[in-house]
Amino acid sequence: MSREVRRVYRWDLDKTYLRTEFDSLSRLARIPFETADQKVNVPASAALLRELSSPLPGEPAPFVSILSGSPLQMRRVLEEKLALDGIRWDEFVLKDNLGNLVRGRFRALREQVGYKLPALLRSRAALPPGSREVLFGDDSEADAVVYSIYADLVAGRLTVQDLQRVLRSARAYADARSAAREALSAVPRADAVEVVFIHLDQRTPPHRFAALSPRVVPVFNWFQATLVLFARGHLDAAAVVRITRAWLEQAGVSPEVLANHFQDIVRRGHLPAHAAERLGLLVSEAESTDAARRVVWGCVRRFRDVSPGPRYRAPSAPDPLPDYALLVDRGLGAEASPTPPAEGDPAT
């Protein structure tokens, strides 16, 4: 692997990149038999990853890593799917579920912390210390916690003892624990993780992630993440328009709905108002008949109309660090969320 400092984008697949339905047994049973062209993307996931994997002017190509809990046996079809979407990747890690099954390690079939943490640390150890990372996961499993632990380990805010405590809490097997310990020892400490995007596939209330750090940005769709990445200099305005176009096509939403999503991400403090205004300036500059460009411009305009005097409030970091072992134990995914109360119809 090249030792050149690169931007790093790490993606989970199911419910992050692909719209995978685990919700019924019949759907679950269908997954292994799906062909690449039958797999469905989360709206705009491919457009976003394609844009991110293109090098910015004067920079080397970013490092794209896919880390998924899907079994190794699905590698061919998943690689085909990524190729169909025009995605290039540098690293593609899948889970050895068959191996776990043969060795009677049934816990490891579902468990994510003991699988993902060592894999992330191993990958990090092979990268130059200055490489900055953006991570993409979802709320159906423990991605937010795993990525946060990883970020704090790499930054040196957590120790090897903390790591062991977390892994014990996750009931990770001994070999996973020692693999993680070994990988961590090879990781040069740096505050490398810039943002962790959590796709709210299960609509987990965003506030639930406030226990982690402002680095964790819960998003309802990849359009919202696109806006945050624009504000942070990962994407330019033209890329925002292209991704918006893909999202409008795939999600089938109206410009008004899109504008509400725009306002939501500003309101929650993840997109500074000045960045929203800058985007408005850039997309309104060129006269264009491009519908997507007009829609993005419309979002900025509506944001101004509905929220006069927007005030950016950056979320604050929790102090001290969260008790990750406890979070792993309790879970921070959708399974911890209450279901909305049933409601009756009005009488008249």
């Binding site: 209330p205 939403v253 504008a259 306002q263 309101r267 929220s307 409030r313 969320s337």
Partner: peptide
Amino acid sequence: TLVLVGDEPLLTHLLSQDRYDPGQIAIRH
């Protein structure tokens, strides 16, 4: 579409504690 009208920071905070669809909700300060 619901436009919640009131103290925006407070409403945003309260809303973020619930499940919701942001495409259907706006807030007017």
